[in-house]
């Protein structure tokens, strides 16, 4: 929701980032305010997931130009765990499996780490068990998940639910959900979307990174951005997502693409 009292949560200016010397992000500008839901769409390889990982502080990506401010602070100076503690959350496209660590142990560790950082009370295993079971109801999750190893042997849908469960527990200010809809059947998608919608409020903000419009039927964005070749080439309302669904991506930004191709050709000449 767009709110006149909202504050600027995230401000990205002219962001360039590369991996192993290859530029992936080529000048991103994006402002996200509290209460807003932004969708970032685009074809594979357009840089959507890279943007998500750069925001979370993945060390494989090097920021070569530009700035990111999170609640007025320079985000680029913070280590990944400091970003998490400051209230930034990344829901992974491919959540990592950690055999040998019980999910409940992991969730409590993450929860207590964030809580203590906020000066709030940590929960002992029994208290946490009650708390997490309540949150799991939001996502229709079987309590068995607590005793299994983190994500080990989880189906794609189960992993994504586990991501949203973490979002529910950690109560981030800014959530970036990377392809949360991929690998979900329609029932699972509805459950995940319902969970996300219950977490979203006027004081937090959400960035949905997605390839398809389908998720946006259930989590309705205030803004839709289209990425191409590491840039946001078009921004619109939720109707833009519909248009992309019917017309595909080809019609957008052909000018920019052509410009880039010319540049590349020039560099090789």
């Amino acid at each position: 929701m767009i709110d006149s009292n909202s504050i600027t949560m995230l401000s990205i200016k002219n962001l360039h980032a590369s991996i192993n010397g290859t530029g992936i992000l080529n000048g991103i500008d994006l402002t996200v305010k509290s209460g807003e839901i932004h969708a970032i769409m685009g074809l594979n390889g357009s840089g959507k997931s890279t943007l998500a990982k750069v925001l979370a502080g993945h060390s494989a990506y090097e920021v070569t130009q530009g700035t990111i401010e999170f609640e007025g602070k320079n985000l680029l100076e913070l280590a990944p765990e400091e970003r998490a503690r400051a209230g930034l959350f990344l829901g992974f496209q491919y959540p990592v499996e950690i055999p040998g660590v019980a999910n409940t142990q992991f969730l409590r560790l993450a929860y207590n780490t964030i809580q203590s950082q906020r000066g709030k009370e940590e929960l002992d295993p029994l208290e946490f068990d009650d708390f997490v079971r309540e949150k799991m109801k939001l996502l229709d999750m079987n309590p068995d998940f607590l005793d299994r190893s983190v994500n080990e042997g989880f189906s794609g849908g189960e992993k994504k639910r586990n991501e949203i469960l973490q979002m529910a527990l950690l109560e981030p200010k800014l959530s970036i959900l990377d392809e949360t809809d991929s690998g979900l059947d329609i029932d699972a998608l509805k459950i995940v979307a319902k969970g996300v919608n219950q977490i979203i409020n006027k004081d937090n903000a959400t960035i949905l990174v997605t390839h398809y419009q389908r998720l946006l039927d259930y989590i309705v964005p205030d803004f839709v951005h289209v990425m191409q070749a590491g840039r946001i080439v078009m921004t619109g309302g939720k109707e833009l997502a519909m248009e992309l669904e019917t017309r595909g991506y080809d019609w957008i930004g052909s000018d920019q693409r052509n410009a880039k191709n010319r540049l590349t050709a020039g560099a090789h000449a």
Binding site: A56, G57, A79, P80, E81, R83, A84, R85, F89, L90, F92, P95, V96, I98, P99, G100, V101, F106, L109, A110, T113, I114, Q117, S149, Q166, L170
Partner: peptide, 19 residues
């Protein structure tokens, strides 16, 4: 993954070693 959930690098390494 663990860092993105607030664990320090040191804690993350220890947890994975434990695992």
């Amino acid at each position: 993954y663990l860092e993105s959930r607030g664990l320090s690098k040191e804690s993350a390494r220890k947890l994975l070693t434990y695992a």
